[in-house]
């Protein structure tokens, strides 16, 4: 049975108000608690290590898989390996949120390693949301690692959001794209107080006519610190574009390290990065509509991270 706290956490990380439709697997404090499979999507517990295999049959369309993880106890270090087989020409949504509620003084940590095989012509939308709450001093730590292999003609949309309550995170993302495979990756990050976040994204454009668009937006407040590493690798006739935008406030720090590596003369790689304060003209405009300075700031940040 899920408690009301469990339900609240599920809502935050997976927009779930009720038990989801379609396939799902809910993991709480290191153990699977509820699961559902469908005719086209199977979920199997791994035998050699903690985690699950999610198998989507070829040509499955319009179905979703929710695999939320919630940690509501302190002093937990949960490590899980999940493997996703996204069958050829299928079109599915995978939502993998992780919420930590820590009221204690000990650390709560969840490390998820997610391996995706997106087969020929398949379409995958993968949404990963992170959320932390609880007023204890215990740290809430999340270290997700996502590895995606996209085969010929696969289309992968990746949405990674962390906007509240995670004290420490190291997010690693590796994507390898085959012929004509396409990636759209959006990252949204907000840190405050003394939080630290690192994001390392490597995208390899291996196939001919593969393409990648990476849009990273972040807001760093208080004494928080963010570090970004991007590596866009072109090994074929391919296009890649990274757009990295950060708003820095208070005494925060943002470090962004871009790398574009071309191993092919027809690789077109672009990296754009900007770090700056909220533009004063934006604040003035919204205040001239009657918003207070605080409301104007909130409106700008909310839009930026939307």
């Amino acid at each position: 049975m899920l408690s009301s706290l469990d339900k609240e956490m599920l809502e935050k990380v997976a927009d779930l108000h009720e038990i989801p439709q379609g396939a799902y697997n809910i993991r709480r404090n290191g153990v699977g608690v509820q699961r559902n499979t469908t005719a086209n999507i199977d979920i199997v517990t791994k035998k050699d290590k903690p985690g699950i295999d999610v198998i989507v049959k070829p040509y499955t369309t319009g179905e979703s898989v929710h695999i939320p993880v919630i940690v509501t106890e302190e002093n937990i270090t949960d490590l899980v390996y999940n493997t996703f087989e996204i069958g050829a020409y299928s079109d599915v949504l995978v939502v993998a949120g992780c919420g930590i509620h820590n009221c204690g003084d000990q650390k709560s940590q969840h490390d998820g390693i997610h391996n995706f095989f997106v087969r020929k012509g398949a379409k995958l939308k993968y949404v990963e949301k992170h959320y932390g709450q609880g007023d204890g001093r215990g740290a809430r730590v999340l270290n997700p690692k996502t590895i995606i292999e996209a085969e010929e003609g696969a289309v992968v949309e990746l949405e990674m959001v962390q906007i509240k309550g995670i004290d420490n995170t190291l997010r690693e993302t590796e994507v390898r794209l085959g012929d004509k495979a396409k990636l759209v990756l959006t990252e949204r990050l907000l840190t405050y107080l003394g939080q630290e976040a690192q994001s390392k994204i490597t995208v390899e454009l291996n196939g001919v006519d593969s393409s990648a668009q990476i849009i990273s937006r972040s807001v760093a407040q208080d004494e928080s610190r963010q570090e970004f590493y991007f590596d866009l690798v072109g090994r074929n006739r391919a296009r890649g574009h990274i757009q990295c935008d950060a708003i820095i406030m208070h005494a925060a720090q943002v470090l962004s390290t871009p790398r574009v590596s071309a191993y092919h003369s027809q690789a077109q790689l672009i990296h754009e990065a900007a770090i700056g304060r909220i533009e004063s003209e934006q604040l003035v405009k919204l205040m001239s509509l009657g918003l207070s300075e605080k409301e104007a700031e909130d409106t700008i940040l909310k839009g930026f991270l939307a």
């Binding site: 003035v284 918003l291 839009g303």
Partner: peptide
């Protein structure tokens, strides 16, 4: 008076070079 106070008193200004907002929709 601040900008906000003047706005609420009924002053308005359309900028010569309006700022743009990432992620804010026209309707918003």
């Amino acid at each position: 008076k601040t900008i906000t106070e003047r706005a609420l008193l009924g002053l308005g200004y359309a900028f010569q070079n309006p700022p743009r907002f990432k992620g804010l929709k026209v309707k918003e």
